[in-house]
Nucleic acid binder design. Structure first.
Lengths: 214, 214
DNA sequence: TAGATTGTTAATCGATTAACAATC
DNA sequence: TAGATTGTTAATCGATTAACAATC
């Protein structure tokens, strides 16, 4: 999808959901309009950066003296994020984390739809969590190919993660969202995103350490 | 803690855990030594970047022609990340996600120790998950101040998140790890890290969309 | 009108990358 | 020795920020 603007960066993409979160709070408070300067202030960002970021998503320009309509801005950002979203995904590994993700309904706000789940434990087979059926892992190639899903979510233990990853890719998956705390090897042409709580923790800890020094 | 090097960036900190993950796989394969060039290749990074990153963590320099000892490098990076870590944290909100985090033992590799959990549901009070006792939320100020923990993990529903956040801060917490999908307002002097699955998803989706275009 | 806010252009800053002398 | 790898210096690149004319 073309959007006219060049240079959409990962940093911009990463900030989009935080704008959305703040805007939704404003909406709940029945605030009608907001300026990029005010958003920047609340989120501790630079106003010019916020203006540039929003320009990627907005369909109509902001109004001088007024700013942006909160509800319109929410809609524009949701559409913007949605336009990148691959609708269908499968999840492999119905342990604690897998269950949590299956139960989470927030993904649909971002256009993600988990169409099926897989696990090796026969006790879980054919049961449902949040309307999603759990299949034996052996059925993965068949169901995945039938569904056409291009994204795989890995929530299995470390030792199984690479095998599951290979299996997903050989069945047509092109994007891997890895929640297993291990390094995965993927071929060229496959996108990999490691969900890395350790990295978040490292950043927060470092900031906190700096703060406590003062 | 001083480390001699200037300019430790968030980007470097974010990459550290991924080095660690890959190195641990090498260790399991009984690989003895590894060069920064080889690490860069496997992780799709620039070799100069890997060299600079590792220089922040390593206690002794790598050997020309040999590279780094895998086990020493693991130890150095763990120490490096650990030196920033605030040992003690409390968790508020023992729902699905809170339970998952309480049960997860991987945090201790990064020096994080959850000392207590809180919830508003009386059914949970005084029960334990993974050795951590769950207390009524009213006891938060008392227990938090007694423990001296400076980090708070928020896993409550959206609507309660700001109140919990305020409560944590007024009881001495200086770092907030927010898993609730909402914007939080924190005063200056408090570090906030939003754990943002939506942002990850946006990045992965965008990459996947690009890949599927080709 | 006056002035707040817009979007954009140009300057700055910092991270990434290339190149290379030093080393074993 | 020859050459792979180190750590570092200098060049490049891209993101952030400041400044400002245009707008209502």
């Amino acid at each position: 999808m073309e959007n006219g603007k060049e240079n959409l960066s990962v940093a911009t993409l990463r900030r989009m959901p935080s704008y959305l979160r703040y805007l939704k709070i404003l909406r709940d408070r029945e605030v009608k309009n907001i300026s990029s300067v005010a958003i920047a202030k609340e989120l501790n960002l630079n106003p010019a950066q916020v203006k540039k970021d929003l320009a990627f998503a907005t369909k109509s320009p902001g109004k001088p003296r007024v700013g942006f309509s909160v509800v319109e801005l929410i809609k524009d950002i949701e559409d913007f994020l949605g336009c990148y979203n691959i609708k269908d995904a499968v999840l492999v590994g119905v342990g604690k984390l897998g269950r949590t993700l299956l139960s989470y309904n927030g993904f649909k706000n971002y256009g993600l739809n988990i169409v099926a789940a897989f696990d090796s434990d026969p006790v879980l087979w054919n049961s449902e969590i949040n309307g999603k059926t759990i299949y034996p892992i052996e059925k993965l190639p068949e169901i995945l190919q039938a569904s056409g899903a291009k994204m795989g979510i890995i929530t299995v233990p470390k030792v199984a993660a690479q095998d599951v990853c290979d299996m997903l890719i050989s069945s047509g998956v092109r994007g891997i969202w890895n929640f297993a705390a291990t390094h995965l090897n993927v071929p060229e042409g496959v996108a990999l995103k490691n969900e890395d709580l350790a990295a978040s923790l490292a950043i927060l800890s470092q900031q906190l350490t700096e703060l406590l020094k003062e």
